[in-house]
């Protein structure tokens, strides 16, 4: 659980755990004592603005970056100390579709099979067949969506327990995004694997994920189930706070006419959240995310005349 999200006790069943994870690039702090737990079998959205540390977190999990402090475990294995053992348990989809320009789709699967002893090429091939992606097509002639699907098929073909997806939707059109998420959902449900999906497009992950982690300024601002995030927050104007609620952050409301404030409700960790109704009203996920991102940036510049 994050700084504002309460403590998690689910580390025993967590597929990915970070403890006090810090990473600096010279003077810039990318991750600042990050504590995060991704329960096994969940699809967690890792949301945050550009520069929040999402990619760095995933790269540390892939042993591409060495943490300055703290540690991370992927399926119980520290990737920096036991890289090959950790990477056997991880399927990775990079930010931009990483394809070899001169190789065909089938060549990519052959290469994956030669590099990863447990790679299930038939499984990946079936996935690509279902999407109508020709195996003999050169990868550099694939569309952006097809390239992303190829990356996902390779990651799924590893039959890894944990999937780390670093903003795979960023460069895709809405239809390609929808298809990508559907393939991911089907695979994760069928295999019972765990996915950490990094994105800054909240609407895309809203339907796909069951858990939300918000990163801002290198810190975890919120880490909880998606439903809880909606239920335990309220968005009002700054002058009318819900009783006993704590202000999270203020930002310009829709239309840009009014400064809105996100509030965390009192007793937010209990069922019913505000304890006032049997069918509690909810806040949109986008508002929750915006509130926490605004908290990370401060409210300077949001005052209206």
């Amino acid at each position: 659980m994050g700084a504002d999200g309460g403590a998690s006790t689910a580390t025993a069943t967590a597929a990915l755990v970070a403890h006090g994870l810090s990473k600096r690039f010279r003077k810039k702090v990318a991750l600042d004592s990050v504590d995060l737990s991704v329960p096994a079998g969940s699809i967690t959205a890792l949301v945050g603005p550009n520069g929040a540390g999402k990619t760095t977190l995933i790269r540390v999990c892939m042993a591409f970056e060495r943490p300055n402090a703290g540690r991370v475990e992927v399926d119980g294995v520290d990737p920096w100390r036991h890289r090959s053992e950790a990477l056997r348990r991880v399927g990775y989809v990079p930010q931009t579709p990483a394809v070899y320009r001169g190789l065909s789709v089938e060549d990519h699967l052959a290469m994956a099979r030669s590099l990863h002893s447990g790679f299930d090429a038939d499984y990946a091939r079936r996935r690509l067949d279902q999407l109508g992606i020709p195996l003999d097509q050169r990868a550099d002639t694939l569309s952006g969506g097809q390239g992303a699907q190829l990356g996902l098929a390779i990651a799924l073909g590893t039959r890894a327990k944990v999937l780390l997806l670093d903003e795979p939707l960023a460069n895709l059109d809405p239809l390609a995004r929808r298809e990508f998420i559907q393939v991911l959902l089907d695979a994760v449900r069928a295999e019972g694997s765990t996915a950490l999906l990094s994105s800054h497009i909240v609407t895309d992950v809203e339907d796909a994920c069951d858990r939300l982690a918000i990163l801002g300024g290198g810190k975890v601002r919120l880490d909880c189930p998606l439903e809880e995030a909606r239920r335990t927050h309220r968005l009002t104007d700054a002058d009318s706070p819900p009783p006993g609620a704590t202000a999270v952050g203020s930002f310009l409301g829709k239309g840009g006419q009014k400064v809105m404030t996100l509030w965390r409700l009192a007793g937010a960790d209990t069922d019913g959240a505000d304890g006032q109704s049997a069918a509690p009203e909810t806040t949109s996920l986008e508002d929750v995310v915006l509130g926490y991102l605004a908290a990370g940036r401060g409210t300077a510049g949001l005052q209206l005349n």
């Binding site: 892939m62 591409f64 991880v90 990775y92 990079p94 990483a98 070899y100 290469m111 994956a112 590099l115």
Partner: peptide, 21 residues
């Protein structure tokens, strides 16, 4: 340069074996 190293290195547990190949 072309960003394919993360794909290969994520698949191959040993980068040395990858390079040797």
């Amino acid at each position: 340069e072309q960003g394919t190293a993360p794909l290969s290195w994520a698949l191959s547990g040993s980068r040395r074996r990858w390079l040797l190949g």
